[in-house]
């Protein structure tokens, strides 16, 4: 599904030049569950943003489903993104002014799904993350764990092939964290590819494979069973 070779990303500010990704090469196969680990500032989020087509690399190749996307412009990336990729963030990133239902519905609106179909699919996925009874609540009326479950629901409502999760349990206690991890595992078992950044060895054990990064490069890969 994903194959990147010698990928580079450099951030330039007035004073400093940060090499966030340094000729990074890696591969993720269809249906895999990969955890990315490494010290703070080693480029994990940068990598995830590029994988998620939110940002473009400065150099190197990025094959997504066997298509070279490294040079894609903003509009093409957005198009590919909204049909194929779901995101889960550490800070949930739900919209405060919208209800749970409306938050989950958003990706469907942007891919042009009809209202009736939207309702069906949102309810289906809310059921799955067991938050159906809270569908008309606003995010701030929910606990952190519940909010993250809504975020996961939103990430999967479009049936994406790939879910990118950046420290999805970072703001949660271990109980809620485990719930979210189990949810991700379940999705993975149903065929969704997952790349997850995490600082927690415990969470990483839910994955098939751990990629360890340092200074914008992969250093080791542990394959778990």
């Amino acid at each position: 599904m994903i194959k990147i070779t010698e990928l580079e990303k450099v951030y330039r500010t007035e004073e400093v030049e940060t090499i966030a990704l340094n000729k990074l090469t890696m591969e993720v196969k269809d249906g895999e569950f990969v955890a990315v680990m490494g010290p703070s500032g080693c480029g994990k989020s940068t990598l995830l943003n590029i994988l998620g087509l939110l940002d473009d690399p400065d150099n190197g190749s990025f094959m997504f489903n066997n298509i070279e996307v490294a040079h894609f412009n903003e509009r093409k990336r957005a198009d590919l993104r909204k049909h194929n990729i779901g995101f889960v963030f550490q800070s949930f990133n739900l919209i405060d002014e919208l209800t749970v239902f409306e938050n989950v519905e958003l990706p469907l609106i942007y891919t042009g799904v009809k209202a009736a179909e939207r309702k069906k699919r949102v309810e289906e996925v809310l059921d799955k993350v067991q938050i159906m009874h809270r569908r008309n609540h606003y995010p701030q009326q929910l606990s952190g764990g519940q909010q993250q479950r809504v975020a996961v629901a939103r990430a999967v409502v479009n049936h994406p092939k790939l879910i990118l999760a950046d420290e999805p349990t970072g703001n949660l206690d271990s109980h809620n964290g485990n719930e979210v991890m189990e949810l991700l595992t379940e999705l993975n078992e149903q065929g969704t590819t997952i790349v997850m950044v995490t600082h927690s060895e415990h969470d990483a054990r839910y994955s098939h494979r751990i990629i360890r990064m340092l200074d914008g490069q992969t250093v080791t890969e542990n394959v778990l069973v």
Binding site: L54, R81, K82, H83, F87, N93, I95, E97, Y110
Partner: peptide, 16 residues
């Protein structure tokens, strides 16, 4: 601004 960011991540176009 955050909401705009989220919506864009979720696939909103500039016009939207």
């Amino acid at each position: 601004i955050r909401e705009i960011g989220i919506r864009k991540v979720l696939g909103s176009s500039v016009q939207q």
